[in-house]
């Protein structure tokens, strides 16, 4: 069965390691914070100027001076640090962030990503997405394998305006875990109960199916 949003987030959480500094994008990526393994210390960065994002505040304890990049009220953890935007993006651009997780509309089998603009719709802007994808050492895209109409989002080439080129390393969808290799998408794992055939059928870009593509352990 295909994973739901939380399932995708749980699988991505398995990529975390103790001591990682991680930037989580808006949407499914944010849910990864709910599945950080017990006993593991991971520091979440908010690009508006915080290392050490804590849980949402209790009602009545919201602080207008304390928000995340999605402009939601948050709290901060022990050991947190605040800083200005240029320092924040020095962390990102300088390769100091260990893992970046973000959503996407489309990913190409060359690792290109389109995530910020749909022609004909209101242009809201790229925010920090272009900075993040251009500089992160390790980028995981969290998204559904197909769009609501059933069209593949894993393509030979992105059709929408790009956020970055050749930058995505790994993709976790509701159906599969895939690595971007010079030869195309390499199927690493299948969602529980999802067949290789279904993944092949729903992947428009070049897909390499190895002899063994085990089920994810969620």
């Amino acid at each position: 069965m295909a994973l739901d949003k939380n399932g995708i987030a749980k699988r991505i959480a398995q990529e975390l390691r103790d001591g990682f500094y991680v930037n989580l994008g808006i949407g499914i990526p944010t849910l990864v914070a709910n599945y950080i393994p017990e006993g593991m210390e991971v520091v979440l960065q908010s690009e508006n100027g915080l290392l050490g994002i804590g849980p949402f505040p209790l009602a009545g304890e919201e602080d207008p001076d304390l928000i995340n990049a999605g402009k939601q009220t948050i709290t901060y953890t022990k050991g947190a640090a605040f800083f200005d935007s240029s320092t924040s993006f020095a962390m990102i651009r300088g390769g100091h962030i260990d893992l970046t997780v973000l959503g996407a509309f489309e990913v190409s089998d060359q690792g290109d990503i389109a995530s910020w603009k749909i022609p004909g719709k209101m242009v809201k802007g790229m925010g920090g997405a272009m900075d993040l994808v251009a500089s992160a050492k390790n980028i995981i895209v969290a998204m559904t394998h197909t769009d609501p109409k059933g069209n593949s989002k894993l393509l030979p080439q992105c059709s929408l305006p790009l956020t970055g080129v050749g930058c995505v390393k790994k993709i976790v969808t509701d159906l599969a875990v895939l690595e971007v290799t010079p030869e195309g998408f390499l199927l690493l794992e299948r969602a529980p109960g999802v067949s290789v055939e279904e993944i092949v059928q729903k992947t428009a870009g070049k897909l390499i199916v190895p002899d063994e593509a085990p089920e994810m352990k969620i």
Partner: peptide
């Protein structure tokens, strides 16, 4: 891009007329 915007402001204040970024 947000980081480029922040750095363009910082550079303006720091006397750096231009710089290279990957974003």
């Amino acid at each position: 891009p947000q980081g480029t915007l922040a750095e363009r402001c910082r550079a303006g204040g720091a006397g750096i007329p231009a710089f290279y970024v990957p974003a």
